[in-house]
Design a protein around this nucleic acid. Structure first.
Length: 422
RNA sequence: GGAGAGGUGGCCGAGUGGCUUAAGGCAGCGGUUUGCUAAACCGCCGUACGGUUGUAAAGCUGUACCGCGAGUUCAAAUCUCGCCCUCUCCGCCA
């Protein structure tokens, strides 16, 4: 959410930003609502000031044993006016609030213009695709042959998109989770294990509600939402609070399962591990001072890249163009890993700066000794999402004997060097 | 799930309808005194949303806020109703 004052003072910038992000928003309506709101506040507060004074007078008169009926009668009608104006004000504020939630965050000047994924800018790449003299298989064939993942059984017990990992497949999951958390810890992130369901307030704080409700699994009986990412519970840890400036930056890494309905996405992508309803992810989350948030974005990205380098998986870094960035971000990088068997890039991390967009929505501030509390900036990025890393490992590290070499960084976590047929 | 107790500023804690502008204390900030430290004394000490002065930093001013939401009243921290949360005990349980 943007500040109404910021919108008023930077109307053209906000308008242009929304257009570039391809969101439709009626800013004139918002400014009009705010004008009306301010006018009404002024009126009703003047009436309230009158009433407060009159109440004092009544108290004095009564204390002196005098009659106060005239004032009381007058104030009775003032009270009615106040009530009806307060009702109108409340409804105005709700309309304004609702309208403000439709205004997207303004893209940072350093982000490229463009409206489609094709216009994202590849700013770096690392590693090289494996060169082999045999035909590389897609991960689902490898996983089936080596009995690492059982998609059909997952479909039986839950539904499609809920795979069962078995044997070395399950160990690979556990090894990756431990590896990611351990590396996060090495880079100064505090490990967190949050609830994987959240209430409506938390889901609203990070922006899942109201717009993305159809993408979440909902436990209606108890009003819980299954989290689509650890970002939701972890960012909400500091909701409604003021943090001392010297505690910044606060950095968390959290492993959670993630649940996504993926409503409306069908097609080629769903094969194998490419798109699941439940998957595992380690997320990196930062709360930072506004002055440093773009440096923090770069270091967040480098923390995520480091993991891919340790796993020796080839990847590229995309700087998202304004049209492909999403509603809440000011700047966003995607890390895409090369999946050699499918011969395609797979997104395994997206690192974003939200500036004060989430913090304002959640009321997270910081305060140094002297100044007023201010909204801080929040960032997050995957570090990393597991399924596509698993596909990349299976595909990039496969041998012509049908086995899969374990990346050297992962061997101590796996307790094995090669994944063979069980 | 059942019974009871409670929720007041950063923290502790008083407050049963109008001298409450939320007492008092602790912590914090500024100052006075003082070889230094400590103590003592004086002052400051919330958030949000408006209005207004100012280039700005900031100041002045109004309104709201005592878990949340409704209600009663000229007037609510205080009375009424609903909800949420915390603690204690009981029941169930990994």
């Amino acid at each position: 959410m943007l500040d109404i004052k910021f919108i008023r003072e930077n109307l053209e910038v906000v308008k242009a930003g929304a257009a570039q992000k391809r969101f439709e928003v009626d800013l004139d309506l918002i400014v009009n609502l705010d004008d009306e709101r301010r006018g009404l506040i002024k009126e009703v507060e003047e009436l309230k000031a009158r009433r407060n004074k009159a109440s004092d007078e009544v108290a004095k008169l009564k204390k002196a044993g005098q009659n106060a009926d005239a004032t009381i009668t007058e104030m009775r009608s003032v009270g009615d006016q106040i009530k009806s104006m307060d009702d109108r004000l409340k409804s105005l504020e709700q309309q304004l609030q609702k309208a403000l939630l439709t205004v997207p965050n303004v893209p940072h000047p350093s982000t490229p213009e463009g409206s489609t994924p094709a216009e994202n800018v590849s700013i770096a790449s690392w590693g090289e695709a494996p060169k082999t003299d045999f035909k590389l298989k897609p991960h689902w064939e490898i996983a089936e042959k080596l009995k690492l993942i059982d998609f059909a059984t997952g479909t039986k017990i839950a539904g499609s998109g809920f795979p069962v990992y078995i044997g070395a497949g399950a160990r690979l999951q556990r090894a990756l989770i431990n590896f990611f958390l351990e590396e996060g810890r090495n880079r100064g992130y505090t490990e967190v294990m949050p609830p994987i369901v959240v209430n409506a307030e938390s889901a609203t704080g990070t922006g899942q509600l109201p717009d993305k409700e159809d993408q979440m699994y909902v436990v209606t009986r108890d009003e819980f939402y299954l989290i689509p990412t650890a970002e939701v519970p972890v960012t909400n840890m500091h909701r409604e609070s003021v943090i001392k400036a010297e505690q910044l930056p606060i950095k968390y890494c959290a492993y959670t399962p993630c649940f996504r309905r993926e409503a409306g996405s069908y097609g080629k992508d769903v094969r194998g591990l490419n798109r699941l309803h439940q998957f595992d992810k380690v997320e990196l989350i930062k709360f930072v001072h506004p002055e440093t948030s773009y440096e923090e974005l770069e270091s967040l990205r480098s923390d995520a890249e480091h993991l891919l380098q340790l796993l020796k998986l080839p990847y590229r870094v995309l700087l998202m163009c304004r049209g492909d960035m999403g509603f809440t971000q000011t700047k966003k990088y995607d890390l895409e890993v090369w999946s050699a068997g499918q011969e395609r890039w797979l997104e395994v991390s997206s690192c974003s700066n939200f500036e004060a967009f989430q913090a304002r929505r959640m009321n997270i501030k910081f305060k140094d000794g002297s100044g007023k509390p201010e909204f801080l900036h929040t960032l997050n990025g995957s570090g990393l999402a597991l399924p596509r890393i698993v596909s990349a490992i299976l595909e990039n590290y496969q041998t012509d004997e049908g086995t899969v070499l374990v990346p050297s960084a992962l061997r101590s976590y796996m307790g094995m060097d090669v994944i063979k047929s069980a």
